[in-house]
Design a protein around this nucleic acid. Structure first.
Lengths: 347, 347
DNA sequence: GTGAAAGCGCTAACAC
DNA sequence: GTGTTAGCGCTTTCAC
């Protein structure tokens, strides 16, 4: 409404294209999509008008008329570290192959995560929600509106699809491995209450130790980054453990760093393991667990697509799906010296 | 149109809320936003109706009416490795603080990147486009529609805001450092033509070497991941260099791995440097360059916001902005042994 | 094959 | 303070 209205370039609309081409907006719309119902000559006129006016259809108008967003959302806590980035990447890749845009939302560092997620839900046809972001009431509210949802790495909710990665069982395998190395005093470094994944890792560890007749692991609570791991190392050392099973690789790398700085040797004085198999784990010789993060995201996108299309075309709603993706122990030298895994090996 | 229409939960609209609350849709709309223009009693009735119907406003309708998307887009090649993830994170954080959703688009592995970017442009109020994604004609076409744009890590285009990180100058500093270590035969591992960033790193290196009276660096072309670096190591060794300046950390880590596997020692037999300062660089003792990736993304989001708001409120269009963010050499042991930087130091 | 017109869900004048 | 109504840009019957 100011003076220099000219300076505000205004995107062309379908009306201007229609006028420029001497046809109706319906014809323009058809020429841009229906293909076969328009004369080649007309189509060409429209094409030229589009070109001349540098026209790009406004997706809002289109989506509103079509009753769909052609977009999916994904909610995750953060994007630091490769874990979430990989999941998002897998999701984006699969979604865009299915012709859908992707909206992202990081909840960490956000006071109004709940409102943001609800808002996001109003902008998409389907939504993936990761572990530690918003609580079940929010998820349930969204599900109740009919928006297809898939839960990633979090406990199932009635009627909602869920995909997780194997935590308990692989944690138990890891524990068996540590026990085979002769480690007896095992400590869990991380916060079992912070997310379902963490709870599962801790539970699997405890279960396996008990099976071996060993006491439950002490827990050194800490956040999930390298610095937290470094800080936790002191409290950890006070417990005089044989092995530190860390909640993820970042924490394990922090423990590695701090232990080295304090003159301790890994694995001779302390075995250390992580989770995720980030790139740095390879260079630190860290024993860890690799997860199919890309597949997690891609599966979510495909399931959502199925749900979205079944809403309009399908014979009704299929029952909620559940899937647990396998994880794999990656043995390197930080868990103890192996004859068959020479130190420095990078698997 | 099927039989079981019931099974297709339909999101409530503002009309149903209005009917349920016994008011008009305008009142509902106001109660949901205007605040002060509605009686507390009315507001409460509306609130209850919203709750009862589990109503979430459809953002399409809202945005169409308001003439804005309240969303920003960002286009990047990929999300593997921390580089882009960090940029995207910084962007998302800043954008969501400004009340905008974020749409992402990865162009790698996409045959129709151009169409996808144009489509994205129609879904947002502003768009950030990173280095190696689509070419200038696409960018120019979008700019011509009036959609605010900011270019990241790519050469400026007339009238479009651009933010880059310092490549040439820091590459020269790195080169000086290598020369000070006594290295004379320096090879660039990477593809200078692959992106503006890479071109700048190569150019800065060449310039500094020339200044020292040394020949221009040989180039071992390679892609940008660890495996590419490992494969490049053979061709690299054939050149018998003193130092390998790698295009990024992934490549450098690949060279490190392959050199070690072949029995070579770093830095005694070969100095190696990277770029980006990924987490693994710290554990590999890799000399590298750290970039303010988060700030890159955040700045982009803020500039876009300013452009978007000036479109409707401002006194006209401000001239295109340019910014180069500083980068910093991170010296570790892979570039040569320092008295003041003991091997194993992690800066 | 093409045009006219009715919405899609919402906001914002403009009345009352 | 609240209701009516005219769009926002597009798709899609329904006529011609």
């Amino acid at each position: 409404m100011g003076l220099k209205a000219l300076s505000k370039a205004k995107a062309a609309t379908i009306y201007e294209v229609a006028r420029h081409a001497g046809v109706s907006i319906a014809t323009v719309s058809r020429a841009l999509r229906d293909s076969e119902l328009v004369t080649p000559a007309t189509r060409e006129r429209v094409r030229q008008a589009v070109e001349a006016l540098n026209y790009t259809p406004n997706q809002l108008g289109r989506s509103l008329a079509e009753g769909r967003h052609a977009a999916n959302g994904i909610v995750f806590p953060d994007l630091t570290g490769p874990y979430y980035a990989e999941v998002v990447l897998g999701y984006e890749e699969a979604a865009s192959e299915l012709g859908r845009s992707v909206l992202i939302l990081a909840t960490r560092r956000r006071r109004d995560a709940e409102a943001a997620v609800l808002d996001l839900a109003g902008r998409v046809d389907g939504l993936a929600v990761m572990g530690n972001t918003v609580d079940d009431t929010v998820v349930a509210a969204i599900a109740a509106t009919g928006t297809p949802l898939v839960l990633l790495a979090r406990p199932p909710i009635d009627g909602v699809d869920t995909i997780r990665t194997r935590n308990e069982r692989t944690a138990a395998v890891l524990a068996d491995h540590l026990v085979a190395h002769g480690h007896r005093r095992v400590v869990f470094v991380g916060d079992p209450t912070a997310s379902p994944d963490m709870a599962g890792r801790h539970a699997g560890l405890a279960r396996a130790l008990r099976r071996h007749g060993l006491p439950a692991p002490d827990v050194v609570a800490c956040a999930f980054d390298v610095e937290a791991g470094e800080r936790a190392a002191g409290r950890l050392a006070a417990l005089r453990p044989d092995a530190a099973v860390c909640a993820n690789d970042e924490v394990a790398l922090g423990v590695l760093l701090a232990t080295g700085a304090a003159g301790g040797r890994v694995p001779e004085d302390l075995a250390v393991t992580g989770w995720d198999d980030v790139l740095a784990a390879r260079f630190a010789g860290l024993t860890t667990v690799s997860q199919p993060m890309r597949a997690l995201g891609a599966t979510a996108a495909r399931w959502l697509h199925a749900r979205i299309t079944e809403r309009t075309a399908g014979p009704g709603r299929a029952p909620a799906r559940r899937r647990v993706l396998p994880t794999r122990l990656v043995v390197r030298r930080s868990c103890g010296l192996h004859p068959d895994h020479p130190p420095g090996g990078t698997t």
